[in-house]
Design a protein around this nucleic acid. Structure first.
Lengths: 191, 191
DNA sequence: TCGCTTGTTGACCGCTGGTCGACAAGGTAC
DNA sequence: GTACCTTGTCGACCAGCGGTCAACAAGCGA
């Protein structure tokens, strides 16, 4: 007579749905403003079940990010056959293309990086790795001023992207030119 | 016989002490990691009294910032008698000098800006105002690319400062040169 | 010594992230 | 058809958070 109190789902299917829901919700609301209870309610399940699939709120958030991160990484992977300068220009272009599509969530991430310590750490690691990649492709010897220049330039790029997304009154090409010129200026020579 | 359960303090004296303690504690711990209960414990008073002096944790944090902000503002205020380019160079130098002294707290702020929405808003307002000040001093007409360039450059500066403070292997003069060259590059012409 | 002002407190609230033992859905074996 | 067993699922609970409030008491003036 009575309907079942809940419907059982395959583990992977449930997990997939929760990840998808998380991606949507975290893009819409700030991390702090979104409680696990609210997410569970939205998913139509109990909070305990959510914790059964993800050990913590941080881990849940990180898991929703990883999908996007992988997509991004594959899109901007530089072609090692190219010259360093060409690699940089190509990857930068691919990155800006990705930003045009998924930008709002990225902007939220850059602006609100502090909310989740683990996320901040990952972002700093990525910045660090990118900086070293660029430094390695530079002609001439590495030096502290150059290291600082490249790392600061990555901040410049984030700032440019945020302003670009906010106003949307520049073309991708203009942003690319702007960003590359800033790097040349910071390095004190053409790149 | 028995000693008093607590000692009454003048309102301003108590407030002054709490502000001083807050400045110290917030410089040492992250905003989220520092509970009002812990602060009250550290101050040797009840949590309720802390809330008697400051309406909220955010307001308390903002109040501890304001002192430093005022000191900073007065130190980097540009001399209007100077040419715009000189104003920028002088203020930048003063800013870097301030960073050398109070830098660690500033770095924590830039990195962890998201923790307190109100703080993030203020920081964005300051960036906005600074950008407009610089844009107004620029020869030639304003344009979207220039606006983006200046705003992104402010991010560059924060990035350079964080790297500088982290490694401390550049002189203030080197940082200044680096930062100014980045601006020239981003604007596409000497400034 | 009394009284009054007001600085100060302990107890409380709703909500958060997180945990745990117990229930029940639904495929399987007879 | 029913008994069983695996395991997906839930309700109830916890400590800690930011924040509130009525009531106590320190210590000055009369």
């Amino acid at each position: 007579m009575s309907e079942p109190a809940y419907t059982r789902l395959d583990v992977e299917e449930r997990r997939r749905r929760l990840l998808e829901l998380g991606t949507t919700l975290f893009a819409r609301h700030d991390y702090d403003a979104l409680s696990m209870a609210a997410i569970a309610r939205e998913a139509g399940i109990s909070k305990a079940l959510l914790y059964h699939y993800f050990p913590s709120k941080q881990a849940y958030f990180m898991a929703t990010l990883e999908q996007k991160a992988e997509e991004l990484a594959s899109r901007i992977a530089p072609d090692p056959a190219l010259a360093p300068a060409e690699q940089l220009a190509t990857s930068l272009d691919a990155f800006l293309g990705w930003v045009e599509e998924n930008g709002d969530a990225y902007a939220k991430l850059v602006r609100g990086a502090a909310a989740v310590p683990e996320v901040r750490e990952v972002m700093e690691e990525v910045r660090e790795a990118t900086a070293e990649l660029i430094l390695a492709g530079l002609p001439g010897a590495p030096s502290p001023p150059r290291r600082t220049a490249v790392r600061a330039w990555l901040w410049f790029m984030d700032g440019a992207i945020i302003d670009w997304l906010e106003h949307r009154d520049l073309t991708r090409q203009e942003v690319k030119t702007l960003v590359l010129r800033a790097l040349e200026g910071a390095l004190g020579e053409p790149f």
